[in-house]
Amino acid sequence: MQKNFKRNNNSRVSDIELNSVDAEKENKESQNKFFELLPLEIYIRIFSQLDMRSLCRASMTCKRWNRTIKTTDSLWKPHCLAVRAVCRREIDDDLKSGYSCRDTLRRNYQKSKVKLEWLSGRYSNICSPVSLPEKIMYPMDAETWGEILEAELKRYVQKSQSDLIPLRL
């Protein structure tokens, strides 16, 4: 008789487990249906609040989100304009050439990071090419190097002037 009790008890446990798994499945399905029923405008409104990294991660969630994020240029425009602060010429040229904000951002993001570090003087103390950190370098055109050289010359002139000791008469 005790054996039957154990069997019944075990079957009840497995029934409870199956019921909880079924309930969890139904809950996920209803959540998925809820997200599928949201209008596109709501998705775009939510996505527009995300930073660039979160936007990229959200695009990996499902095909619908990926397609929405990939094809909605207005989501990428603020991020593109932020990079434009450093790479104005490059961004303007790409946008005039017909690239989307997303593609323009993809083409110029890494360059903007490296260029910003150069322009801010991070590499001003480097004396030889061996000292350059290769892993973060990015190929740049002659005009970009010209901008960097101008910034370096201004820094050099300012430093030279501040090193001069004023003469008192």
Rank of each mutant, 00 (worst) to 15 (best):
V83K: 03
P139R: 05
P78F: 08
E150H: 13
D141G: 14
K115P: 01
V130I: 10
P129K: 12
D141H: 06
N125S: 12
A142R: 11
P133K: 06
N125T: 07
L81A: 11
Q110T: 08
K77Q: 15
L149V: 07
D94E: 14
D141I: 08
P133I: 00
I148C: 09
L105R: 02
G121T: 03
L153N: 04
T144F: 04
A85F: 12
L116V: 03
E147T: 06
H79S: 09
C87L: 14
V83Y: 01
L81I: 14
A82V: 13
L149E: 10
R107A: 11
C80Y: 01
R102E: 06
G146L: 06
H79F: 09
W145V: 03
L105S: 03
L149W: 07
N125C: 08
D92M: 10
H79C: 10
V114F: 15
N125Q: 09
T144C: 14
V86C: 05
C101K: 01
V130L: 09
V83S: 04
G121Q: 01
D141E: 12
D93L: 11
R102H: 04
R89C: 03
C87V: 14
R88C: 09
S120M: 11
R155A: 08
C101N: 14
I148V: 13
V130M: 06
L153Y: 00
I91T: 07
L75I: 06
Y123T: 04
M137P: 00
R155M: 06
V130H: 06
P129T: 11
S120W: 04
S131Q: 15
E90M: 07
A142L: 10
Q110Y: 10
E90R: 07
K154G: 00
V83L: 14
S97W: 01
V83R: 03
D103C: 09
C87Y: 01
V83F: 06
A82Y: 09
Y123P: 02
C101W: 05
G121C: 04
R155G: 07
Q110F: 07
C127N: 06
K113Y: 11
R107H: 13
H79L: 14
R107M: 11
N108D: 02
E134R: 13
H79N: 11
L105N: 01
V130G: 00
V86I: 15
D92K: 10
K77G: 00
L81M: 15
P129N: 13
I136A: 06
G146F: 03
N108R: 07
G121E: 02
Y138C: 15
N108C: 08
D93I: 11
I136R: 12
S124L: 01
G121W: 01
W145Q: 06
P139K: 05
C127V: 08
C101H: 14
E143F: 13
L119H: 04
L153K: 08
N125R: 11
E143N: 13
W145E: 08
L116C: 15
Y123R: 08
W145Y: 13
R88H: 08
E152H: 04
K96A: 14
P139N: 10
E143P: 00
M137S: 15
L81D: 15
C127M: 08
V114D: 05
Y123L: 04
L119D: 05
I136V: 10
K96I: 04
L149T: 08
G121F: 02
A85T: 15
S120D: 13
R84P: 02
R107V: 04
E152I: 00
